[in-house]
């Protein structure tokens, strides 16, 4: 079982994937996200950090055995149990299909929509409207898939659920208000089921779905 | 061993990943990319296709056993042999790290730089200059990694090399002219080694590295 340290900054949904995976697999994971253990923007620019992680990006994982890994999907995969990765060639490929889908078809539009509401990116009306349309497409596809399924791959939580749920986390917390998300009941049911799993809850705490679509925070 | 059909359009570098993986693993892969087998924009909008692949995107894989899969990384992974995926937990995680790196840190800037030269998108000077800088960063990181390695993970070709090489394919063919790429000799050596592998060659044919940086195609 893997054991090591995850370097990240607080509230990093990418790091949550690895943390939740570790909750399921039992991997011993220390999280270094606040000083003195780790200060984003400083620690990750030190020669010591860059010698292990040349890009300086986080999340970054260092095993107690010295093994270093970057890219959140790779770290989450490494910290998973076999069950989470998919227990057949088909299932493990389907898990990766959803992981790719999250990065390709959810994260760009979720970020474009949510970041201005967090005040961390300039608001652009056209970009936000387009992001909404992209998000509708992704949610419709997910909703159709979850119409006859509890989880994305197989009968239990897998890395697919962990990854897609984390990529939707900020959208549900900030902008997917009831009037918007009501068109995707299967996705809502699936998301709530996920965040209420003890392993998710330990990492995410109580996740409150937004009651009103947050507007950009000037 | 997997056996099935890959739906795509000709010269789709994303589909190449799966095709090359199949060459290594021995998976029996039929490629449907031209009429009458498959016409991009028509066949992928038919109810029959959409019932298997709701997003209508390609590449899309359908096994002879009926198993369907989308997302090029998932398809390539499925068609791989265990050796290509990495033969240890560390190696398989490192393979996925490079797969993520390709999608996150190469494809966006390669697309921004190359698309205008193919006439796919409007030229934008600022976007192109930014893309060049991002490409330099990615190539520098790769060059450092390959300074003491022949391949990206382990001692032999893995899905990491297949994925990263394919994500750089159009950049080497169109814009990475000798004056630009000379700063990354290890990457150049590695790329040429890859494309000269019989399995790569069968799929890509003779890849000619550009002699002059292509300009946007008005």
């Amino acid at each position: 079982m893997a054991a090591g340290t995850l370097y990240t900054y607080p509230e990093n949904w990418r790091a949550f994937k690895a943390q939740i995976a570790a909750q399921y697999s039992g991997a011993k994971l220390k999280v270094a996200s606040t000083p003195p253990a780790f200060s984003f923007g400083q620690t990750n620019r030190t020669p010591a950090f860059l010698s292990n992680f040349p890009t300086g990006k986080v999340p970054a994982y260092q095993g107690d055995d010295g093994f270093c890994l970057t890219e959140s999907n790779a770290i989450a995969y490494y910290l998973c149990s076999d069950a989470l990765r998919g227990t057949s060639p088909q299932a493990s490929a389907q898990v990766l299909q959803w992981v790719s889908f999250a990065d390709a078809d959810i994260v760009p539009s979720a970020s474009a929509w949510v970041f201005p509401t967090l005040g961390i990116m300039q608001f652009n009306k056209q970009a936000t409207e387009q992001a909404k349309e992209e998000m509708k497409r992704a949610l419709a596809y997910l909703n159709q898939h979850l119409n006859t399924r509890t989880f994305l791959v197989g009968e239990r939580v897998s890395l697919a659920d962990i990854t897609v749920a984390c990529s939707l986390l900020w959208a549900y917390k900030q902008v997917l208000e009831p009037a918007f998300r009501q068109a995707y009941p299967n996705v809502n049911r699936w998301f709530v089921t996920c965040i209420n799993q003890p392993q998710f809850k330990t990492v995410l705490g109580e996740v409150k779905l937004c009651e009103k679509m947050a507007q950009f925070d000037a | 061993m997997a056996a099935g059909t890959l739906y795509t359009y000709p010269e789709n570098w994303r589909a190449f990943k799966a095709q090359i993986a199949a060459q290594y693993s021995g998976a029996k892969l039929k490629v449907a990319s031209t009429p009458p087998a498959f016409s991009f924009g028509q066949t992928n909008r038919t109810p029959a296709f959409l019932s298997n692949f709701p997003t209508g995107k390609v590449p899309a894989y359908q096994g002879d056993d009926g198993f369907c899969l989308t997302e090029s990384n998932a398809i390539a992974y499925y068609l791989c042999s265990d050796a290509l995926r990495g033969t240890s937990p560390q190696a398989s995680a490192q393979v996925l790290q490079w797969v993520s790196f390709a999608d996150a840190d190469i494809v966006p800037s390669a697309s921004a730089w190359v698309f205008p030269t193919l006439g796919i998108m409007q030229f934008n000077k600022q976007a192109t200059e930014q893309a060049k800088e991002e490409m330099k960063r990615a190539l520098a990181y790769l060059n450092q990694h390959l300074n003491t390695r022949t391949f990206l993970v382990g001692e032999r070709v893995s899905l990491a090399d297949i994925t990263v090489a394919c994500s750089l394919l159009w950049a080497y063919k169109q814009v990475l002219e000798p004056a630009f790429r000379q700063a990354y000799p290890n990457v150049n050596r590695w790329f040429v080694t890859c494309i000269n592998q019989p399995q790569f060659k069968t799929v890509l044919g003779e890849v000619k590295l550009c002699e002059k940086m292509a300009q946007f195609d008005a």
Binding site: Y9, P10, K57, V107, P108, I120 | S39, A104, S111
Partner: peptide, 30 residues
């Protein structure tokens, strides 16, 4: 922590590139 979210490379324009690529290759394939 929130501000750090913008540190990660996010391809905001990806949908636009996907659309352009799709049109181009649909066009090429008649």
């Amino acid at each position: 922590g929130i501000q750090c979210l913008t540190q990660d490379s996010i391809w905001f324009d990806k949908p636009r590139y996907d659309e352009a690529e799709r049109r181009f290759y649909e066009g090429m394939n008649g």
